[in-house]
Design a protein around this nucleic acid. Sequence first.
DNA 1: GTCACTGCAAAAAGTTTGCACCCGC
DNA 2: GCGGGTGCAAACTTTTTGCAGTGAC
Lengths: 135, 135
Amino acid sequence: MIIVLNMKRRLTPQREAILELIGSSDRHWDAESIAKMLARKGRAIGLATVYRGLAVLEEEGLIHAIQLTDGKKRYERAGKEHHDHFICKLCGSITEFSHPAEARILEHLSRETGAVVHGHEFVVFGVCASCREAS
Amino acid sequence: MIIVLNMKRRLTPQREAILELIGSSDRHWDAESIAKMLARKGRAIGLATVYRGLAVLEEEGLIHAIQLTDGKKRYERAGKEHHDHFICKLCGSITEFSHPAEARILEHLSRETGAVVHGHEFVVFGVCASCREAS
DNA sequence: GTCACTGCAAAAAGTTTGCACCCGC
DNA sequence: GCGGGTGCAAACTTTTTGCAGTGAC
């Protein structure tokens, strides 16, 4: 069940379906997977609408975008505490992690350079434990 | 002047031109900028050849690829000590930085999860000092 | 009735691939 | 002369845009 207040833009049925999908899982969704999954659930939405919906939902802070090392943008539910991503090169799985030292790095950067930091993305790649065992 | 030994693939004049361009600057080049710059220098190379050349040079470890938050891949000269990137949202400038705590984060991740870390990318975005002053 | 939203199809932007030709070894 | 390299054009992938139609308020 989703309750959203104070949106500048409308929460249409399509956008609600997208939000529901992303918000109720811990997956990292790309636009096409969303369109396909909704279609499979009998709730097909035009791909362009998915892209536009994702942009709106992100603007509203209801979902969070990440850019991994492949071309495509992924979206995850907002409201998690900040975290980074580890991607397994073999199975493609995405694991989240975080470390307190990260905040200190950003503070240090800001203090040294005078820049204002708005956001960051820390993507680590390698081979996950289960793929390592399997090989 | 470039001296390269022990390449598995050939260092053709085209590849040498690309390597020379990237290797002699501290810029972060995308494929099209390379093609345009070489053309401007009277050394035009087909865009597909640039892409293929970049892939070969990266395989050989002669250049280093980074994926920022926009779609395109950038390349920088190899052999620098490891560093991360700060991108100014306003002027698009890319600044390099590094912090010793980063290594500790990766060690910690590896120890906790059992994953093998091959690489990582830490991209920070915000507004750089000079854009901040200018506005 | 207006204005935002949708869906389709077309266009962009970045990258890859197919193919004929060419060149170095 | 073989295998790798080049250049062009065509294909592909992800994302954006134009536009006519639709529906909410």
